[in-house]
């Protein structure tokens, strides 16, 4: 009696997990590193942007230490100039205690610190949306009060912006290297697969299969492999980031180093990890396709 078939289309290339497992594991490690790089770069860029935003609407006038009577005069004169300047929302004298607390992380709580001559600071907040000619303001303050300096935090902002930009380029470089390494691994694996399945490929070719049909068999396999590796890498990276977030938060609380930013990738950072499996699958699939098409192009 004749057997019956269900007619389901079996994969034309044999599937053997044992042969693809090492590559999946290697790709997963690459995806893990890529995911961490991506999340860390986003995290540091956002932190730098936060700092820059915090500094952009403010400025500080620094008054050199002097005798008590003189310094009071300098403070009064400077505050008058500032409050008379359009575009300045507030000008506030920073207390000596506040100034000391700002230096505390660097100088500690030594007893002799109180005896050191401290500059006096006046914190300025600009009206949002208005433009103040800070160069002219700085000149006016310096002319009226000897030794007074207006600090718009421009140098800090430029440093932070440069730092963030350099980090971003560094991250792009690392990601490009990881992508290139992954593509290289897929090329070798695809070539090995072509050699292993050479007879199958030849049969398909001579039965009249188009190159794109044969390539689709390989690219489907590598798409799944890339997706699996990407998901594994992204999940482990998310776990690492989460543990890191909790650990650095606890460390900051225990050591009292609250001036350090929290190492949290935030929702955006965690969401960006979704890109990793998608990119891994795309890179693996396209690399396999191009490799197979190039090899088939050399067949008669």
């Amino acid at each position: 009696m004749a057997e019956t078939t269900n007619g389901g289309a079996a994969p034309l290339l044999p599937t053997d997990r044992r042969t693809t497992l090492p590559l999946t594991a290697m790709m997963a490690v690459m995806c893990y590193l890529a995911a961490l790089t991506l999340a860390l770069s986003i995290m540091l860029s956002e932190t730098a942007a936060d700092w820059s935003r915090g500094l952009s609407g403010t400025a500080t006038v620094q008054l050199m230490p002097a005798e008590s009577k003189v310094i009071d005069e300098h403070i009064q004169k400077t505050l008058e100039i500032l409050r008379a300047t359009p575009g300045i929302a507030s000008a506030r004298l920073v207390s000596e205690a506040e100034t000391r607390s700002l230096l505390e992380p660097w100088l500690g709580t030594l007893s002799g610190v109180d005896d050191l001559p401290m500059p006096r600071l006046i914190a300025i907040a600009f009206d949002p949306g208005t433009v103040v000619d800070t160069n002219a303001l700085g000149e006016r303050v310096s002319a009226a009060v000897p030794g007074a300096m207006l600090d718009t935090h421009q140098a800090w902002r430029e440093t932070l912006s440069g730092f963030a930009g350099a980090l971003a380029w560094f991250a792009y470089g690392v990601l490009a290297l990881i992508a290139a390494a992954a593509a290289g691994a897929v090329i070798f694996a695809t070539r090995a697969g072509l050699l292993t399945h050479q007879e199958i490929v030849e049969v398909l070719h001579f039965v009249g299969a188009r190159d794109s049909f044969i390539a689709s068999e390989f690219q489907r396999r590598f798409l799944i492999l890339g997706l699996e590796a990407g998901v594994l890498g992204a999940v482990f990276a998310a776990i690492t980031l989460f543990v890191g977030e909790i650990a650095t938060g606890a460390m900051a609380t225990n050591t009292g180093a609250n001036y350090l930013p929290a190492l949290s990738p935030g929702l955006g950072g965690y969401l960006s990890l979704v890109l990793v499996p998608a990119m891994a699958a795309l890179i693996a699939m396209l690399t396999a396709r191009v490799t197979v098409l190039a090899a088939l192009g050399r067949m008669p």
């Binding site: 007619g7 289309a9 049969v203 039965v207 009249g208």
Partner: peptide, 10 residues
């Protein structure tokens, strides 16, 4: 196989 490659449905 040849029919599958020719694009015919199972």
């Amino acid at each position: 196989l040849p029919l599958r490659i020719a694009g015919r449905k199972p």
